[in-house]
Write a protein that binds this DNA or RNA. Structure first.
Lengths: 207, 207
DNA sequence: AACATTGTGGCATGACCGTGCTATAAAAGC
DNA sequence: GCTTTTATAGCACGGTCATGCCACAATGTT
């Protein structure tokens, strides 16, 4: 039954399958056969929407970036536009926003796993590098805008080097995520939140 | 010409080849053929020292951990045993010690790449998990002992939660390393050092 | 000198991979 | 109704992989 299919939707469904396979079995398992099985399609069907395996991988990375960005920016807008909130309210929303980048539930855990899998792969695969870079840029931008907004709202010292602090906070979130997906039992969600709160505290205190 | 070979040395030489291949071309390129070529041996020779591919990979991870640990602990002893140094001297040595975990030159860059490559692989390969965990533990221990020592020497506030701060600093170093190997041009060595100095400053200041 | 051990090299096999190519069927356009 | 397009499905090929198995050479042992 062809022709009742939205090609874009199909491509995204296949990207879903790629994400599932990579998150569960690793990037090396993201073969056309495994992806097709995961998507409930035949190899030929998958190949109808992607010219070759490389394009499939690139699209999967782009799609990952799109989803992370989408979810994160909707959260971000709520924080960055609301200007008449109390300090406690802002602080709480800031924590929630940054928590979007941590593996605090299954959805975010898979995203962290995928981010790191693609980031490592991009180191030796030029075709992926640009798109992996875009995801990191999205993360940095989120952190940067968050800190910039907090500074503008008076929640952070005026002489704080926001660019440097954004790099540092981004590193904390990324490094924490990597540890947490490797050793979930040693880094439970509340510990991750605690580390982030501690970091934010140190920012508000120091100059 | 057999029998004039030290098996342990040979195994380490092969592990060297694995490291070189993984650092340059990624983990998926660490096939017996590529590794044998890199080591200047025939496949059969490599197989004489490793029963199968899995054992080769496990040994390569162990060897990576051994080397990182070795280099790092020799640095660490110099810092942790010297007790009669000035505060500036201690601070400088602390920065140097933590810098061992950052990709500040080619040797350390390769180590960071390898750490992340194996860490990501371990997420979906149970046989590697234990050994990847050991490397992370080594890193954490180093950071922990460093902070503990600094606290004992009066360089850090006495009420500082050293365990929590070790996790946070470890995350900074790990996340920073990942960014730096992905985008070397955007994270030059002096920027990495600057971030670490900033982090240490914030530790000495805040309670 | 005879034998066992260790190191080196390679052949053959079965599995899996991406991909070129073809076949068939359902929908769309005429 | 006929052709064209789109979707699905699969076969077959060449390539690469780890690995089982064997051949052979150099050393050590007796």
């Amino acid at each position: 039954m062809p022709k009742i299919v939205d090609p874009q939707q199909r491509r995204r469904a296949v990207a879903d399958a790629v994400h599932a396979v990579v998150a569960h079995y690793g990037l090396q398992a993201a073969t056309l056969r495994n992806v097709a099985d995961e998507a409930g399609l035949a190899i030929g069907s998958v190949r109808h929407y992607f010219t070759d395996h490389d394009e499939l991988m690139i699209f999967a990375v782009q799609e990952l970036g799109r989803r992370v960005g989408e979810r994160v920016w909707t959260h971000a807008e709520r924080l960055l536009t609301g200007t008449s909130d109390s300090r406690e309210e802002r602080r709480h929303r800031t924590e929630e926003l940054l928590a979007e980048l941590l593996p605090l539930d299954d959805v975010r855990r898979d995203e962290v796993v995928l981010r790191h899998a693609f980031a490592v792969a991009a180191q030796t695969r030029p075709t992926l590098l640009t798109h992996a870079e875009a995801i990191q840029q999205t993360m940095y931008d989120l952190v940067h805008r968050t800190l910039r907004g907090a500074q503008a709202a008076g929640g952070l010292p005026a002489d704080l080097d926001v660019e440097l602090e954004s790099i540092r906070l981004h590193a904390v979130l990324d490094g924490l995520g990597l540890q947490a997906v490797l050793f979930p039992q040693r880094f439970p969600p509340d510990l991750l939140s605690k580390v982030v709160r501690r970091h934010l505290d140190s920012l508000t205190a120091a100059a």
